[in-house]
Design a protein around this nucleic acid. Structure first.
Lengths: 145, 145
DNA sequence: CCTTGACATAAAGTTAGGTTTAGGAATTAC
DNA sequence: GTAATTCCTAAACCTAACTTTATGTCAAGG
């Protein structure tokens, strides 16, 4: 069993955030001893799931819905599985977008590296948009398509 | 040359957002004809960079700083390059985190798939935390480390 | 001419996800 | 026993990035 301060340390989250999550119903049925929250392994796993779902783009109230399903029991296994499947495809799509972002960033790094060497952007402007070195052209095309 | 409405269509962004970006100084020196914004290829590329930098986690005012550097000329090439290098490492780190998120999501999908088949979580609880099938164990370990 | 539609501005409003503040209560350290 | 920590709640506050509203201009079609 952990106090809110210990969990705050473990997860590097402000105490106020943990209290906020609790107030929003993300730790249903958490124990208390004379008013003081007692975080068990169940709450720690809940917190891991909260961080995961948040990162997947889910809102707090939808995470609360998931936590309610957990309380409801075995009848909600399909709902819970469906939720994770949906988040999975959203995160996969997000990674594709991030790769495109990374391609743009790599292109811009090359661009300014070249500009620094040349002292201007004249040669670069002549290479744009389709006479770039092959590997750079790939980055550019993926970032601009 | 494009009107704000055309650009809104092309980038699937609300007109209000484009005006907001302009007000925040993200299109320095954009042309106008009797008050009406004229978006040129320069502004379209600016918009691509805005979307890229935003996705990399940069705030609007920092993007404005970048746009100011672009106006300043060749002396800011190193600043601009440095900015993109920094964003690059941030996006790479973000992708590692997203992969961890994806591992958690994949683990949970397997978990509930198994729970549905078993009708309960008893067998699962016996396998946790280190007697999972090898490929699932990897997901679990990466998501919980 | 007058209505429609796309453009403009300034300023107020919105939203999510916290964070801070004010005022206590209880536990721990010495 | 008292001083310092750590905990509690309710409610106000904050921030970024838009969005909405109110009001107005201007060009083209009927």
């Amino acid at each position: 069993m952990y106090t809110i301060g210990q969990v705050s340390e473990m997860f590097k989250l402000p105490i106020s955030t943990l209290r906020y999550y609790d107030k929003e119903g993300l730790f249903p049925g958490m124990e208390r001893q004379s008013g003081i929250r007692k975080f068990s392994e169940r709450e720690l796993e809940a917190l891991r799931v909260i961080e995961c779902l948040k990162k997947s783009g889910l809102e707090i109230k939808e995470i609360k819905q998931f936590m309610s399903w957990c309380v409801e029991g075995a009848s909600t296994y399909p709902d819970r599985k469906q939720l994770f499947e949906t988040r999975k495809s959203i995160v996969k799509a997000e990674m594709v977008k991030l790769q495109k972002t990374l391609d743009m960033l790599n292109f811009k790094c090359w661009y300014y590296e070249t500009a620094i060497q040349d002292g201007n952007e004249e040669r670069l402007n002549e290479m744009l948009p389709d006479k770039l070195p092959p590997d750079i052209q790939k980055l550019y095309d993926n970032a601009h398509k």
